[in-house]
């Protein structure tokens, strides 16, 4: 019995070595002092971190990504919070369909969605690249916003609302003074999860590039195709630090159940 558990523990350890080992290895390669990416590095330096700031397109695309993710997030919140509230608060005919409708952007393959955006939002609707990026990213963030906020609202006791109304609050006033403060952490978690989802997105952004316009991950892809040096390792380390920070905050806000529930 003990033997078997030890075998299983070793197996699990190897699985995690497979999962985390590669991330560790590129982190180490980011400190390479030479010109070629290799493991283990021969000498220590931070020059590749400096190099990130020498590549102008990294700086520009980073700004683009941040802007698109933040603006998209804001619009997704404006659309998603009322919808999530309606879906949690009321029972009505066709509720499951509406629910499925709002999560459908996750079900459509990203690379297909991106193509449809390119063909119709950029093509037919004639939106400029920036606007198309903004709209596209809003679409992919919306399901995450609605899902996380709905799960946060599912723990909300709506009789508190009635209490507030009985004390003289209006419907809208009730929402802002009673509901919103209670799902604050859910909203923040939703924003962070959606942000990561948007910021890391390749499948949609890859179609939406133009002269001097692309998102950060697409810029990374382009760079990798042309140079095989540790700049990308250095960027990876910075991105992982940001990811870890976001994950830590989401965990604080709502635990890990969001990730294990499906």
């Amino acid at each position: 019995m003990q033997e078997k558990n030890r075998g299983l523990a070793l197996f699990t350890f190897l699985v995690f070595l497979f999962l985390l080992g590669p991330l560790l290895i590129i982190s180490v390669t980011s400190f390479e002092g030479g010109n070629i990416l290799k493991f283990p590095p021969e000498e220590f330096s931070l020059r590749w971190y400096e190099n990130i700031f020498n590549v102008e397109m990294f700086l520009i695309s980073f700004k683009t990504s941040i802007l698109v993710s933040l603006a998209g997030n804001l619009l997704a919140l404006l659309l998603g919070v009322p919808a999530a509230y309606a879906l949690s608060r009321f029972d009505f005919k066709g509720k499951t369909i509406i629910n499925a409708f709002f999560v459908s952007p996750i079900l459509v393959p990203g690379i297909v969605l991106g193509f449809a955006f390119l063909r119709y939002i950029v093509g037919t609707y004639q939106l400029p690249i920036y606007a198309a990026l903004f709209v596209g990213h809003t679409v992919i963030m919306l399901p995450f916003i609605i899902r996380v906020i709905s799960s946060s609202l599912s723990n909300f006791d709506f009789s508190i609302e009635e209490a507030a109304e009985s004390l003289g609050a209006s419907k809208v006033g009730t929402f802002f003074t009673v509901v919103l403060p209670n799902i604050k952490s859910g909203i923040l978690a939703a924003v962070m999860i959606a942000f990561l989802e948007s910021f890391n997105n390749v499948d949609i952004s890859v179609y939406m590039t133009g002269p001097g316009v692309s998102t950060f991950p697409i810029q990374m892809l382009t760079y990798v195709e042309n140079y095989f040096d540790p700049t990308i390792s250095a960027i990876s380390v910075l991105l992982m630090i940001i990811t870890a920070f976001f994950m830590f905050i989401v965990e604080r806000l709502m635990g890990l159940s969001y990730f294990t529930k499906r």
């Binding site: 999962l19 985390l20 590669p22 991330l23 290895i25 590129i26 990561l196 910021f199 890391n200 390749v202 991950p217 990374m220 892809l221 990798v224 990308i232 390792s233 960027i235 990876s236 991105l239 992982m240 990811t243 870890a244 976001f246 994950m247 990730f259």
Partner: peptide
């Protein structure tokens, strides 16, 4: 953690 990390980073590794 790997799930939230950029797929570009993970494939690059």
């Amino acid at each position: 953690f790997p799930l939230l990390t950029s797929p570009v980073v993970r494939s690059f590794s």
